[in-house]
Amino acid sequence: MLDFDYSFLAEVLVGGLLSGVMYSLVAIGFVLIYKTSGVLNFAQGAMLLFAALTFVSLVERGAPFALALLITFAIMVALGMAIERVVLRPLVNKPPITLFMATLGLSYVIEGAAQLAWGTQVHGLDLGIDDTPFEVAGILISKFDLFAAAVAATMVAFLTAFFRYTRIGLAFRAVADDQFAAFAVGLKLPRIWATVWAAAGAVALVAGLLWGARLGVQFSLSLVVLKALPVLVLGGFDSILGAIVAGLLIGATEKLAEVYIGPFFGGGIESWFAYLVALAFLLVRPAGLFGQKIVERA
């Protein structure tokens, strides 16, 4: 063990944690929807692609950055509300698998619509944040990763304050706790669902811009949902804090596994290793780290 390179271990760990933040950004969009409506929105990745593609296409057509952001935000809010109104409201009270299949179909529709509207070309996206590294105690840290972490922290702080201190936020929590009770006390469920879908659209925009700047704006953006799924299993489908903590855990675990265990299996293990961790955790704690434990009476 004398030769063990601890600074390299630290570098892998820090890199993994920062990668995990990017996963959390996607997972938060899932959590928002699941928390209030019990729907696992598989179309979140497609929404992310749609947001990034719309933004970059507007910029390339000469729209100033702020205006493009504003227009895309408006489009994503409208898209979220339209999905709730046209696809999900008619399916209220249907089994969860029906709702899940609806969002699965929706993801294909949104992906197709995005390519139809904006074309199939690959685009670069420059947010003006350098992806160059700087060194702290021999460890390279990317400025862009720190920026993404700051954005994620801001978003979590904003959402936490929103859920805790605003009237509509409290209504969200009431709906999340018990939809029937919330309806019985006069909360307008359709309006709340529409608002939360709009919020998920906005979260997709933020995640889409950050992932788009990292990968380029292209079809593969919609595949980042695959990175969010183990995060959701680990953190719980209805906990924003869980999404953040689990993102960090998954990011760090998969990178450490790739570097230290991967060579024994020929490498390339990180994608399934994250799922292995999530699966193992599921067996021990089915609701995830911070997920709500549902107790049902027989």
Binding site: D5, V12, G15, G16, L18, L140, L223, V259, G268, E270
Partner: peptide, 19 residues
């Protein structure tokens, strides 16, 4: 060094390369 499909995350591989 293998990069799992689709390859949208390569931090571990490039840190290994750096080493």
């Amino acid at each position: 060094i293998e990069v799992p499909h689709p390859g949208n995350e390569q931090q571990a591989q490039w840190l290994t390369i750096r080493r």
